[in-house]
Design a protein around this nucleic acid. Sequence first.
RNA 1: GCGAGUGUAGUGUAGCGGUUAUCACCCCACGUUGCCAACGUGGGAACCCGGGUUCAAAUCCCGGCACUCGCACCA
Length: 572
Amino acid sequence: MGNEGRLGRLNSLLRRRGVVLPSYEIYGGVSGLIDYGPVGARIKRRVIDAWIDHWSSIGGVVEVDSPTITPKPVLVASGHVDEFNDHMSECSSCNAVFRSDHLLKDVHENPDSLKAPELDKMIAQSAIACPSCGKSEWGDASPMNLMFPTRIGATRGGRDAYMRPETAQGMFMLYPALFRHFRQKLPFGAMQTGKGFRNEISPRQGMIRLREFNMAELEYFIDPEDPPTPDLGEWGSSVSLLPDPEGPHAGEHSLTFSEALDSGIVKHPTVAWFLALTWEFLVHVGVNPERIRFRQHASTEMAHYADDCWDCELSGEHGWVEAVGIANRTCHDLLSHEEHSGSKLLRGWRQFDSPRTETRDVLAPKGAVIGPAFKDEAGAVTKALSELTEIPDSLPFVLHLADGSKVEITGEMVTRKNEEVTLHGEYFTPHVIEPAFGIDRIIWHILDHGYSEIEKEGGEYTILGLKQTVAPFDVVTLPLFDKDGMGDLARRISSRIDSLPGIQGDMDSSRSIGRRYARADEIGVPWAITVDHASLEDGTVTVRRRDDQAQVRTEVESLLSHLSSGSVGDLF
RNA sequence: GCGAGUGUAGUGUAGCGGUUAUCACCCCACGUUGCCAACGUGGGAACCCGGGUUCAAAUCCCGGCACUCGCACCA
């Protein structure tokens, strides 16, 4: 935690310099919504670009882009409509509000599954005491859906929909297209960056809990029997791990990713790989490695879809904050979408090493008998016969149809056969490992970790120590004075800098040179180049390094090539 | 959502019934300076929103919104 007032000064800086500001401020503002200003939007752009680059580099991963408006059935299948419908009960005596299911923790095994009337009944029957005042006078449980509802269609009618609470469902919807794109071979991944929406009850803590936020998610589809097991030796650093507090490894451990997997703390090799890749990304964009830890969810805390879940937490002015969730979602989503939609396209194909021949008894239907006997139901009967897993020893027998009804099958209707089939492979529902990044929370910690208040010549001085990869500008060009042609030369140099691919410069000619260095330092510009009288004579400029204010004189051409190759530091 | 506190230029603040609304930083122009928030002159910029009380409200009261803290919530 920082010293007293640091948080306030950092927030002031972010507002003053157009990094992050409250939204709609002239109309009073809205809690949980923020704007990225001209400086912040550039930082955000670069963090997202870095994220896409990072995950692209592991191969077999593509970017997709889906709508934020999501039809209700999609979110019913994913479980969000139910899971997001927590109920709240209010104490009529002291007005305190609690989650209804939490009140029933001790009297019901799975209170989360109860409907509102059942909750009310059980709270009354068990005479649950208010944790706040001890009385037992409860109002009715009322639903609290954290999703933003909307409707598709401007006229009457239309379909119920919600703003997406996560981008992940978009990737699941695209699974068939992805499977085709990757020529029907697992593993592969799809990633997406974009907005997610959660109607938080009480957003707090600036950019930590937002109602509309930026997320970046990767869904990595694997064959659960053949998960990728990359070599983790590449990551030699030890990291802080907090395994399940109810499990065998409870307590804080400092281990390499490889050790964490070998010791069984991380259960899944692909999850371990993603923990390492997540750590690498965060450090790459400027998060302080000492302020990163991975915390395993207790089984009781697990999201409805997850099997094993790790949070990557970052420490800053708001304490330890979950910034990335890495979950093994198993086959939950694809299977549930298959069940709800009836689609058969949400599967993977596992080729056998050699074809397998299976023989099995079947009862082959005789269409000529079954058709007239069952008429409209004949199709369902035929289907049920083909799906029989156990062939009855004697006929007639009672067959259960898919709709629950029963029919009697007699000897004339079927032929008992011994069928031989050759199987070259089998269908299965892929499992999904998902790293989900909260971009705003990561940006906050980049800013927090980069913000330093130092003493300079007796005065207070502020530097935002952003890595060049996420700095709002790579370099600022400063004419020592905007006269004698120095301003014109500076503008020409600045324009050449801007034309370098991937490099963005800024220019500042207003007021004293020291003030301009300070302004650039404050928003994290790593390099400043100064055009002075000598520049007019010999085409050299001075390059100043933000972090130690060291200066070196160099040719403009040399500077431009070092900027292009990202090696300005080599000039010093 | 509950309780308490706080809302004054871009930022930090003074004013607490009657002021041309204070000060500093800031921003702009000109001059000066000629490599680390220098200086001079001039200029710019604010009482969260809506009601009420009062001759008069930034100031008192009520409601809303926002922020901070505590409780609750946060897949």
